[in-house]
Design a binder for these strands. Sequence first.
DNA 1: CCATCTAGGTTCAGAAGGCAGACTCAGATA
DNA 2: TATCTGAGTCTGCCTTCTGAACCTAGATGG
Lengths: 150, 150
Amino acid sequence: MPATLATLESSRCPITRSVSLLGDRWSLLIVRDVLGGLHRFDELASHLKISRAVLSPRLAGLVDAGILERADYREPGARRRAEYRLTESGQELVPILAALVDWGRRHVAGSAGLRLAHTGCLSPVHVEMGCAAGHAVPNAQLRIDVPPGH
Amino acid sequence: MPATLATLESSRCPITRSVSLLGDRWSLLIVRDVLGGLHRFDELASHLKISRAVLSPRLAGLVDAGILERADYREPGARRRAEYRLTESGQELVPILAALVDWGRRHVAGSAGLRLAHTGCLSPVHVEMGCAAGHAVPNAQLRIDVPPGH
DNA sequence: CCATCTAGGTTCAGAAGGCAGACTCAGATA
DNA sequence: TATCTGAGTCTGCCTTCTGAACCTAGATGG
């Protein structure tokens, strides 16, 4: 019996669990845009050029997953509006985005445009792996053990 | 007009481009399993519990994207079989997987099971960001500039 | 020589999810 | 009272996913 979303979600592999939350065509782009300063439904819909009917359940899913939080706010003399912000857990997705940027820049033709910079010195940012013993770990020295119950 | 797959693929943002190749429920799991030592169609289908009808076009897409390569091989006295292996470009997806593992372990309840280790010393591996000036970059110090043409 | 097995698929019908565009609803504004 | 705006929902079509059955080529058994 192939895996359904439910069985993916009950898996114990952290990649499977993460992918079941983030592995669709929109979630990471939404996180990117919220991180980039877009917080309102219509801003997101028009920047991403995503159908509102798709954006709405996606936002709800990300809120449900604890990645975004929805807050009502009210500018003086305006009515209440909804706003989406990253939770702490959402903030910690940045290394994933940074890794995607790194890879996209190097391996997908024509990927320019977006910049990641260190707020301290404005230098470009990249991702690296390290082990608990303090060594830098190049890609070829990563060992991945996939247990049977994925 | 909302974005279609075609407009996503023609985007210049590296996240968008990467997500258009990898942003579905299966591609990263396939890469994980190939990295973990599964190379044949049936091994992948049964370990992932994915329908063959879905696995087949996914593998073709990953081959097309230059992430996997398909090679026929022949064990002595057996007939030709197909085998999927990571290309160099596919190997370089490991930081993305590592970042997903890191995040999943910390933020999704019950994510145990999969281990990433440094082949040199077998210590667990984690991901960190650094800037070109040599500073470590904590999540909160990443600045992301999303240009209008996403 | 014929039947069977196996790896690696393809084909099919039905279910689920994505899409565009129209509609809704509540509070502010004219 | 009518209109505007943000944040959605509703509807109908279309594409993709799913599970099961089927196909093909080369080995293997009788």
